[in-house]
Design a protein around this nucleic acid. Sequence first.
DNA 1: ATAGAACCGGAGGAAAGACCTCCACTTGTT
DNA 2: AACAAGTGGAGGTCTTTCCTCCGGTTCTAT
Lengths: 236, 236
Amino acid sequence: MDPTTPPAAPRPLRRDAELNRQRILVAAKEVFAERGLEATLDEIAKHAGLGVGTVYRRFPNKEALIDALFEEGFAQILELTEQALANPDAWQGLVGLLTRMAEVQAADFGLRDVMLSETYGRDRIAQMRDRIKPMMERLVERAQEQGRLRADFRATDIMAVQLMISATVEFTHGVRDGGWRRYVPMVLDGLSASRDGVTELTEPELGDDDLHSAMQCWPRYRRGSAHVDVRRQQDL
Amino acid sequence: MDPTTPPAAPRPLRRDAELNRQRILVAAKEVFAERGLEATLDEIAKHAGLGVGTVYRRFPNKEALIDALFEEGFAQILELTEQALANPDAWQGLVGLLTRMAEVQAADFGLRDVMLSETYGRDRIAQMRDRIKPMMERLVERAQEQGRLRADFRATDIMAVQLMISATVEFTHGVRDGGWRRYVPMVLDGLSASRDGVTELTEPELGDDDLHSAMQCWPRYRRGSAHVDVRRQQDL
DNA sequence: ATAGAACCGGAGGAAAGACCTCCACTTGTT
DNA sequence: AACAAGTGGAGGTCTTTCCTCCGGTTCTAT
């Protein structure tokens, strides 16, 4: 049933070709993890020590490669969710889950993009998403029954929360490893039904210099810095 | 001293030219507000009913136009901060400030980009940022002295908080007007020193369909959807 | 060993997008 | 009326991305 190796494979790959296929997969995993899905197949090829042509011979396009790669990653997320659900303390389960998710996002920008975008992975990954959703709903419900999660929280809010955390991950990326860890407890403190005091923040604050460089290289707007030409003109 | 109208203006613009200059400014404000700083000067020209050449005659490049436009916007933010600081209840001041900031971000994506990027606005706007920073520090300090803001919060965290909120603004944009309003109180509940119960959420939750379309058109990853070609190839 | 299918590399085609220039033509001003 | 100032928008240039093509190489079956 595993679609990566169809039951009646037309023909096994030549030995060198199979080796290269593996190399591509490994390289793609690494490059996507580091740069997110915006990475180019050219980049991946280079990182694998192969020509682009070879990559395109094996995978018809980027989408196919992504699909082949991230099923596994999504399975991992599904497992995390199951673990969270297995915790008798649903709130702790949720806390752990969101923390783990943040770790996953920080460790693998490719997987983050697949998780958060819905644009990639049209087939198999979409199914995964559908399997996770009801689990999330149950988790939320149970945490509320146990009185720890704010009653007005909804399962659909989880995506927004993940996005918020993702923003901090991206923001601190390349500036301070794990800088995002400071913000996960803060967000979670906002989700608890009520609390006396505060969850301790183990991650120290960002310094002014950290903040500066984080803003400088924040990816979303990096493009703008390309053309800083600023010749004056008389009639501005 | 105001650089927008130098003391010895070389020559006043011709009447039609001045009119067009205003048109450009207005159009730029609108287009940037709607699409963020990624908008093209070509777009702006079209929206102003003028040719690109006219725009480039008046402003040497995009950067200059942005600089000319957003000083005013930044002044507005500075004023918001002052108002927040004027509130004897510093926590309420902070709550109000972050809410207003979110409103600003939602209403004007261009201003959001200028606020959050540090890439644009090399001169005057950078000064603005420097003026706002100490005010933020004072606000945080006072809110903590009054015991309402969590003691481990720092002024440098404000940027991360704004980014989180910005993520929700963008996420809900085009899906549900003001959908982000649901998340600001949640985040703020995470910043309070302690609380009994929860701030009421006036904004209703996102439905499954909202969520779906939000994810579909989330700008960050829209590109990926362009080439959904997915022709199969024998040896995948 | 050798034929020939399978495979490889990477230059470069194609398309899209962004910034900006150029210059023939129009308009305002004196 | 003369001419400086202003205008429009086609298109140059540059960059980026995806992907194809094909001459040359390597494996493998016989």
